[in-house]
Amino acid sequence: MKLYQYHHCPFCVRVDMIANYKEIPHEKVYLLNDDEETCLTLTNAKKAPILEHSDGTTLSDNLLIAKHLDTIGDTKKIIRGEANSINQPSPLKEVEQAIRCLVFPRIILLGLPEFATQSARDHFQSKKEKDLQQSFENALLDSSKYKKQVEQALNALSPLSLPSDHNNTISWDDILLFPILRSLTMVSGLLFPEPIQRYLEEVSRITSIHTYTDFEI
């Protein structure tokens, strides 16, 4: 079994969390960000993550992959979420653009495998600058403004249920929330409330998904 993915991609992190948490044997394959050929060959679309079984069959929708991985094995099931439910309006959703403005310009500076070539970095930057409607340079210059918006949203989040609150298990809420919070750990000087910091540390440890704290920019 192979998981084709990007290290930074929240959708990829979702499935990687489950594969690691459940200790499912698999090979991680990190695609270059501008590698369209591999994606098109496997799924006829430029998207990740992609799960490839040993018989060559594939899945490419991240939630379908996540649900499929959860059916493998009888132990360590993903529990139903409660306190962290993202089905309710989330303060983080309201600052989605600010999060992107903080994260996108920094991602290509971290030395991640999907950005190992200049063409991969250029491909990402060109696409995301269009999404942001501004240059990465300008977004970085306005970091203080975006940090303030995101910090207000972090402080407005409902109390998070920790894995240690339910026998060191993770929930479907964690699968959806942790990748977003994890991406923000690359932002130097961004202040996380202590409960969220603890949440990040616990989920990171249980799923073997490292944060970007050591690579802050």
Rank of each mutant, 00 (worst) to 15 (best):
A83F: 04
N84L: 08
N84C: 10
S85D: 14
S85Y: 05
N87T: 10
Q88C: 05
Q88H: 13
P89G: 03
P89C: 09
P89Y: 11
P89D: 08
L92V: 04
L92N: 02
L92H: 01
L92E: 06
V95C: 11
E96L: 10
Q97A: 13
A98T: 01
A98K: 07
I99Q: 15
R100W: 11
C101N: 15
C101L: 11
C101D: 11
L102V: 06
L102W: 08
F104H: 13
P105C: 12
R106Y: 07
I107R: 10
L110N: 08
G111R: 14
G111Q: 12
L112V: 07
E114R: 13
A116Q: 13
T117L: 12
Q118D: 15
Q118Y: 02
S119P: 00
S119V: 04
S119A: 14
A120I: 08
H123N: 12
Q125V: 04
Q125H: 01
S126L: 07
K127I: 03
K127N: 05
K127T: 14
K127W: 03
K127V: 01
E129A: 07
D131Y: 04
Q133E: 15
Q134G: 04
N138L: 14
N138R: 13
A139E: 11
A139F: 06
L140D: 02
L141A: 15
D142H: 14
S143G: 05
S144I: 14
S144K: 15
K145W: 08
Y146W: 15
K147Y: 10
Q149K: 15
E151W: 04
E151L: 05
E151G: 10
Q152F: 06
A153K: 05
A153G: 03
N155V: 11
A156M: 09
P159Q: 01
S161P: 00
P163S: 11
S164G: 03
S164I: 03
H166D: 13
S171F: 01
W172H: 08
D173P: 00
L176Y: 03
L176C: 08
I180C: 00
I180L: 09
I180A: 00
S183G: 06
T185Q: 00
M186H: 01
M186K: 02
M186F: 01
L190G: 11
F192K: 07
E194C: 00
E194H: 05
I196P: 08
Q197R: 13
R198A: 12
R198W: 04
L200W: 04
